[in-house]
């Protein structure tokens, strides 16, 4: 028998279990992932030259507000808010959080330019009116339009970067075995795109478009489930700490949260509903996409929580 106890180790939010991040960080990661997904799908839509005012392109306008909201959540989490500007007085190559701050900083103008480049085709009516009142907008659109493809390609790259970043942010922490797996980046990217696909379905008024994203989503959900499975398998075949971390969901305190909330409600249920719908079932149109989005949020809450519950030291 081993008995391990500590005297005095009682720092708030550190002991006995790490709990430095509450709701703000998962919300930030979720909004970042959703924004990345929307940017990616919107940019792809632009590159494919889709017209007929596709929803994916319209939602490009939501990317920056979502990113701003996300960064707002992160700001709320900061304990020393007056120093927030310090994120931009340094670039630390080894710190994903530093990369993230800078990538987001680049993603916002690129996204805005892309929105400008597509505005006249996406919102022909409102754009004309706007241009009259704010001539600068017109000049911006005219400036961006010839550069649409460059902007779209940049957006694809940035979207993938942001999507993966939301995962890498966590997986880079070697100190937290439940996070420390390279698959987390791709999972977060896929999950973000899947949430974006869900969002497009929610907003879209075109039956065809919804079908298309439904099909995409089914694929993404399957990929996500496979990746999560892979993650568990690699954890189980890893070193002691990761094996112990995996037990968190295999009989440990987060077992129910994982199997019921994350897997059943967040992934399998929407997958089932969407497949069912694709086979012709008639369900309320908002149900599956809402579940997809909720699932993506739940997943981030779960991961952020689970990672903090794992560590290298047993007390």
């Amino acid at each position: 028998m081993e008995e391990l106890i500590t005297t005095q180790k009682l720092n708030p939010h550190i002991d006995p279990v790490l709990h430095i991040w509450g709701w703000e960080v998962p919300v930030y990661l979720f909004l970042g992932g959703l924004a990345a997904g929307l940017l990616l799908l919107g940019a792809i839509s632009v590159l494919r030259g889709e017209d007929g005012r596709p929803t994916a392109q319209r939602l490009l306008a939501a990317v920056t507000p979502l990113l701003a909201l996300g960064m707002g959540a992160l700001f709320l989490d900061l304990e020393h808010k007056v120093n927030v500007f310090r994120f931009y007085t340094a670039f630390v190559v080894t710190a994903p959080m530093s990369w993230g701050s800078w990538i987001l900083l680049v993603a916002v103008p690129v996204n805005l330019l892309l929105v400008a480049a597509t505005a006249r085709s996406v919102w022909p009516g409102s754009m004309a009116g706007l241009e009259q009142r704010v001539p600068a907008l017109g000049r911006l659109a005219s400036f961006s339009e010839p550069r649409t493809r460059v902007l779209a390609w940049s957006s694809v790259v940035l979207a993938v970067a942001v999507g993966i970043y939301t995962g890498i942010l966590l997986s880079a922490y070697g100190a937290r075995p439940f996070w420390n797996t390279a698959i987390l980046g791709p999972i977060f990217l896929v999950s973000g795109v899947s949430a974006a696909a869900g969002a497009i379905q929610l907003v879209s008024r075109s039956q065809g478009e919804r079908r298309w994203f439904e099909r995409l989503d089914v694929g993404l959900l399957v990929v996500e489930i496979v990746l999560i499975g892979l993650m568990l398998v690699t954890m189980l075949s890893g070193p002691l700490q990761t094996r112990q971390a995996a037990t968190l969901v295999l009989g440990g305190p987060l077992t129910v949260a994982f199997w019921v909330l994350v897997l059943a409600i967040g992934l399998l249920l929407p997958l089932a509903l969407e497949t069912w719908q694709l086979r012709g079932a008639r369900l309320p149109a908002f149900l599956a996409p809402l579940l997809v989005i909720a699932g993506s949020l739940i997943f981030r809450f779960f991961i952020v929580e689970a990672g903090q519950m794992t560590g290298w030291i047993a007390y």
Partner: peptide, 23 residues
Amino acid sequence: LCTGCKSCIAACPYDARFVLPEG
């Protein structure tokens, strides 16, 4: 320079760090 983002806390395998009331 510290923003209180707690990234370093998450990164320390020894749980050696903490946030002071000052942030």
